[in-house]
């Protein structure tokens, strides 16, 4: 079978899955179904990364996004429970429809402009696709990405590690609420006072 045809089928299959997952993410009434749509989008994105010769990023996408982020979303949805889902009323429907229409218009015009104003053309002025070059065998392997990350990107890499630590500590502190206060700052409980002190205070 023709390899180009296989590549084309592969791309359109994963592109359709990614778009369907994205639409079901934002359209699902139940947030659990939305998280499943997000999972479908992320898996399809990993497949597209593979077709772009980014094998390391495909693995990272599956491990971090599908394995951690989506599970975190599912945990949050389950912790909040079904009462947290907003009711299906028509409040604020006007501003939201307006904002959605603005975003749709802006995005359609952006896609059209990027199609019309960039890229190569034939002599008759027809827009032609920009063919991808032949893949270098070293593209996207762990070694070549690591050379980049630990070469020019070593400072952002260290800052990213600090960011992850700070965000995890901050997430625990924010989600824990008032129970997280240290013991010496809590108000002393009255029954824990010694008997002598209480009687002395009452006599005075």
């Amino acid at each position: 079978m023709n390899v180009e045809l296989l590549k084309t089928i592969y791309f359109y299959l994963f592109a359709a899955c990614a778009l369907a997952g994205a639409v079901s993410t934002i359209a699902a009434r139940n947030p659990i179904r939305g998280a499943m749509g997000l999972l479908l989008t992320i898996g399809s994105m990993a497949g597209l990364f593979l077709s772009l010769h980014a094998e390391f990023l495909a693995a990272v996408q599956l491990i971090v996004y599908a394995g951690a982020v989506v599970v975190l979303f599912l945990f949050a949805i389950m912790v909040l429970g079904p009462e947290a889902v907003p009711s299906a009323d028509n409040e604020t429907v006007g501003p939201r429809v307006f904002a959605g229409a603005c975003v749709a218009l802006a995005s359609i015009s952006a896609v059209w402009m990027s199609w019309e104003w960039t890229g190569d053309r034939t002599r008759e002025g027809a827009r032609v696709f920009t063919a991808l070059p032949t893949a270098d065998p070293a593209t996207g392997t762990v070694e070549s990405v690591a050379r980049e990350v630990f070469g020019v990107g070593i400072v952002p890499f260290e800052i990213a590690s600090a960011l992850l630590i700070v965000s995890i500590v901050g997430a625990v502190a924010v989600a824990r609420g008032k129970q997280g206060e240290p013991a010496h700052r809590r108000l002393p409980a009255v029954p824990s006072l010694p008997d002598g002190l209480v009687k002395k205070g009452a006599a005075e």
């Binding site: 791309f11 778009l19 994205a22 639409v23 934002i26 959605g100 896609v111 696709f129 063919a131 991808l132």
Partner: peptide, 25 residues
């Protein structure tokens, strides 16, 4: 046509628009 750069860029733009619309609405 074989899969070119524009296919990926347009797919990325569409996904971004879907995400932006979801965030807005």
């Amino acid at each position: 046509t074989p899969i070119a750069l524009e296919h990926y860029l347009i797919l990325g733009a569409l996904l971004f628009c879907v995400g932006a619309m979801g965030f807005m609405t």
